[in-house]
Write a protein that binds this DNA or RNA. Structure first.
Lengths: 154, 154, 154, 154
DNA sequence: TATGAATGAGAGTTCATTCAT
DNA sequence: AATGAATGAACTCTCATTCAT
């Protein structure tokens, strides 16, 4: 593709960014919806949400999804607002699951902070995860669950 | 300050970035060293390492410390290498603490992955933490410890 | 032409300088080669070399050819070396002609110094020659030959 | 000396350049005056003028004397005019000598062109002369005289 | 729709000059 | 006088965007 060609398809580079972000978010939301449709116990659901999020981050074409918007003033208020809304919606869907886990003592922290931490831990993986090295996405998901889910010995 | 003024003090903008990164990393390392000098039990030490890291990220002048280098080709190989070395050194210092916690069953995950997740969770906080809102750095540190430290019921 | 336009065609201003120097040198060399292909007596050849050099200096687009490189650190070692090589090659081609003239007593001076002086005399003309004034390039060439070629009275 | 210190002594960098040029020109003129005071035959005088010019170019502190003004628009009209006047004066002093040599058949070329060529040949020497190598200023002066002075065999 | 030369705003940098000390 | 940090105009270069083909 050549320098002037994008402008046949997008009004501007920022319009392209917006499109990519939106499509990426919507695809992550769709993937997450699949997980939530199947009713499973909370821990299994959390593991599957984590796995689904890692796929959205590390496998799909939109790995930078959660990082890009933060260091860019490229989007206008309207666009930024819509992207934020999609992200809010995405993150909100985790709350009932976290809530249930907290109520059974498996998750022990302020839930909003816990959600922030879990997302941060996962999002940061784009900086160190290397598909060609040892760990698989399943390994990551298992480790994440093991890290934050407390099994009361009984 | 005016356009040409930085160049009285730094050879280039990149030289400034390097200086900021280095000073920030060294100050974070110094803060961490203070924590590790006092011998406490592993959980307390972890809590204090977390608290110290949050201070380096969110209170000091160098909030972008862990983010900047990744999306920048500004540093040459030698500079990048030194920064990486400092970061490695910094992260390595957590391992004995995590190891001890794992050995007593308080931490349950592959240790390297656990370290990545914990750092990610903390580093990501620069994107959502707002000092003027409810939670303090202590709240964050407590929540992080509660999230990952497993108390076995005795 | 506007500020950024050169950079469509050249990587940098220095790359442009290098291109200009190289093309100018190669064109001067080509012009000189034409002269040397025709076998004439040494004096005629010298006159034609002089005339050809004056054309390269004063008529073509590359009048600064022999001046620019000296007061400029714009070229890197490799580029400077190639330009020097072309210049060496160019100047070396005069030596057999000067040598023959010396052997018949028409040229009386250390040959290397003579070559330096002749080139200097010609190169310096870019500082004073004015095409709109009296003298033509032929006048210059004739005067230069008359100045340095000694006719022994027979 | 430090960046701001020149401005204690000169109004501007250009004022310094002007001062240097003027002092250099006046010193070259003084040196030349010494030569012309002693009455000798024309050839000897020419040789001594040449030698004196080479000293002004290559030995004194003002080697760039004849080159600098040409690639600089640093001087204002008034200053440029005075420097040109000094240079004119300097060059004009050679004409009687050249004229006498021409009248005896020792110099064979249009005199104005001859003067331009001789000055060019000498001025260009700053680009190739190396005091540490073989030739001395005397060698240069001898070679220059030998090159342009025609000895009629008789 | 695709191309790529041209544009021009803006970033990074240099350097002569100023000025408080 | 000397200093050197600060200034700001000018230069080199980058990059998103435009436009004639």
């Amino acid at each position: 593709m050549h320098s002037g060609s994008i402008f046949c398809h997008f009004k501007s580079k920022d319009a392209l960014l917006y499109e990519v972000l939106q499509i990426g978010m919507r695809s992550a939301l769709a993937r997450q919806r699949m997980v939530l449709l199947e009713k499973r116990d909370a821990e299994t659901t959390l593991r599957r949400l984590i796995r689904s999020h890692l796929e959205s981050l590390l496998e799909s074409n939109s790995g930078l999804l959660w990082e890009v918007p933060y260091d860019s003033r490229a989007l206008n208020a309207r666009q930024r607002h819509l992207i934020e809304e999609l992200k809010c919606h995405y993150e909100a869907a985790w709350m009932p699951v976290l809530h249930e886990l907290a109520s059974t003592g498996c998750l022990r922290a302020d839930l909003t902070l816990a959600r922030h931490f879990i997302f941060g831990a996962l999002n940061w993986s784009v900086d160190w995860f290397d598909a060609k090295e040892g760990a698989s996405l399943d390994d990551l998901a298992d480790a994440m669950v093991a890290l934050v889910i407390h099994k009361t010995s009984r």
